[in-house]
């Protein structure tokens, strides 16, 4: 029984449970076709940018912050890669490297403003969101461009039955998990969860905060590269919806907004959960509701309502599971 309690109180529980629930419902509405490679590839490769964005957001939230500029970061990286490779003839590999550096730089700007000007992260990233969005418009004013076909075929393909983009997620996750074994990882949580204690323990609050946002920027850059591979093009407005979605993913995954508690596992599960919700709504309509002709005129509203209701239920249950965990909180 204590094993179960230990499991229930670990970080990310709510995310895993929600994911499990979503899988079950999905199988019900979709049928056995759920278990096909094509299906997994569809869901996972399309949502990989969101999953990676959720990882980036987790790092910031663990540090008791929030990053509203993730979407703009992804957009700017996407436009930079396309501009460099299409307009200036860079090789796609070099353009991607430049994009990654740009993402890191963006995170560093955020980190600098938040750590050293001490502006609340909500407002600071709200401000930088428009700056980076505007820059993306300058870099690539209209959607267009292309990438070599091997890039998007590789991204959208499978190896050994696993969608290739999943490997990217695994690499990013491993990097963070490795970092969290080192002092810096622990410090990010410490500063998030118990700032005064961390300070008296000699940790430089500003430096840690700066690193957290910079790291989040790099990872968002990876998400930008993924979106470039996914869409095989550039669009100065591609990343707008990712921001709110990745925040939802983090909350669904059980990471506390107050900082210090949580983990990327839950956020990854939360992001996949969101992808499955879209899938569930799609198949619910495609397989069941299509028979009701009267539904057609309201279909679009009902889709929205359904999607939002499921997400809200998910958020509520995520917070509910959090309450139990308060007893088992581990302060690092």
């Amino acid at each position: 029984m204590s094993q179960v309690r230990k499991f229930l109180s670990s970080a990310g529980t709510s995310g895993y449970l929600l994911l499990l629930g979503a899988i079950v419902i999905n199988v019900v509405v979709q049928g056995s076709s759920f278990f096909s490679t094509a299906n997994f590839t569809s869901i996972l490769s399309v949502n990989t940018p969101l999953i990676i964005a959720a990882i980036a957001q987790t790092i910031v939230v663990l540090n008791r912050g929030i990053d509203l500029s993730v979407g703009s970061n992804i957009t700017l990286v996407n436009t930079i890669v396309i501009m460099l490779s299409n307009k200036y003839g860079w090789s796609i590999e070099a353009a991607c490297a430049a994009g990654l550096i740009a993402g890191t730089f963006i995170g560093a700007i955020n980190g600098f403003i938040i750590a050293y000007f001490r502006i609340p992260s909500l407002l600071a990233t709200f401000a930088t969101m428009s700056v980076f969005g505007g820059l993306a418009l300058i870099v690539l004013p209209t959607p267009g461009g292309s990438v070599p076909s091997y890039m998007y075929l590789l991204y959208g393909g499978q190896t050994l039955g696993i969608p290739n983009s999943v490997f990217i997620v695994i690499v990013v996750a491993l990097i963070w998990l490795l970092l969290s074994k080192y002092p810096i990882g622990k410090h990010i949580r410490a500063v998030g969860g118990a700032e005064k204690s961390a300070y008296t323990a000699g940790i430089s609050i500003a430096k840690v905060r700066f690193i957290a946002f910079t790291l989040a920027g790099t990872i968002s850059g990876v998400a930008g590269l993924c979106i470039t591979a996914l869409t095989a093009s550039g669009d100065p407005k591609i990343g707008l919806s990712i921001t709110l979605n990745c925040i939802a993913a983090v909350i669904l995954g059980g990471t506390r907004l107050a900082g210090g508690w949580g983990g990327i596992g839950g956020s990854v599960a939360g992001a996949v959960f969101l992808g499955l919700v879209n899938n569930i709504v799609f198949f619910f309509f495609n397989n069941f509701l299509t028979h009701f002709s009267g539904i057609a005129s309201r279909a679009s509203f009902i889709q929205q309502l359904l999607t939002n209701t499921i997400i809200i239920l998910g958020l509520a249950s995520a917070v509910f599971t959090q309450r139990r965990k308060k007893r088992a909180k581990i302060a690092t």
Partner: peptide, 24 residues
């Protein structure tokens, strides 16, 4: 059969919807 699916201005959702339509 005729259905409408709305993507809420999210390109990822639209891509996913299209993938599922192809699969289905």
């Amino acid at each position: 059969k005729y259905d409408t699916f709305v993507a809420q201005n999210d390109p990822a959702v639209q891509a996913q919807q299209m993938e599922q339509l192809i699969n289905a």
